[in-house]
């Protein structure tokens, strides 16, 4: 136990001395700080738009990006949504397109009445062009089916 502690301390000291040597050479290279993203909002939007616009995008990538977007503290810009819908068209997955619009609607949170109509208005040309229905048109804005309790299903 004592030996292990000594070794640990020794390793730590070595690390510190290395650090000091390094600092002389390259100042600031070894500071223990979290790295902050310097990406602007425009760059972020452009990155996701370009990601969805890639010709060779597959189901996995599209869904991962959508899930990621849903995990962020933002509502995707209409241009990202449009790019995503077009990606769904290339993947031949209309369910994914509807689901993503639903997810964007959920992302509006308490401002749903303000943000969601704006997004719908912006993506309307794309919806008409691709023949995608909004969740409202499909009746998915309100609960449609009830899910039986799993404990009742196989009872």
């Amino acid at each position: 136990m004592f030996r292990t502690t000594c070794m640990q301390v020794g390793t730590l000291c070595r690390g510190v001395s290395l650090l000091r040597n390094n600092r002389v050479v390259t100042a600031g290279a070894n500071r223990f700080m979290s790295s902050h993203s310097t990406e602007t909002d425009e760059e972020f939007d452009a990155r996701y738009e370009a990601y969805f616009n890639r010709k060779e995008i597959d189901h996995w990538e599209a869904r991962k990006a959508m899930n990621d977007l849903c995990g962020m503290d933002l509502v995707p810009e209409p241009k990202i949504v449009i790019a995503a819908l077009k990606a769904c068209r290339r993947l031949n997955d209309i369910a994914l397109a509807v689901r993503f619009i639903e997810a964007v609607r959920e992302k509006c949170g308490s401002k749903q009445k303000e943000i969601y109509p704006y997004i719908l208005q912006e993506i309307r040309p794309t919806l008409d062009e691709l023949g995608i229905n909004t969740p409202e048109e499909l009746g998915y804005d309100k609960p449609e089916l009830a899910l039986p309790n799993v404990y009742d299903v196989h009872g």
Binding site: L96, E102, N133, L138, Y140, D141, P143, E144, L147
Partner: peptide, 15 residues
């Protein structure tokens, strides 16, 4: 379209 949706997903988000 609704059949395709239910093929991919069980519940809608509002459900």
């Amino acid at each position: 379209k609704k059949a395709l949706y239910r093929y991919s997903f069980c519940q809608t988000l509002s459900e």
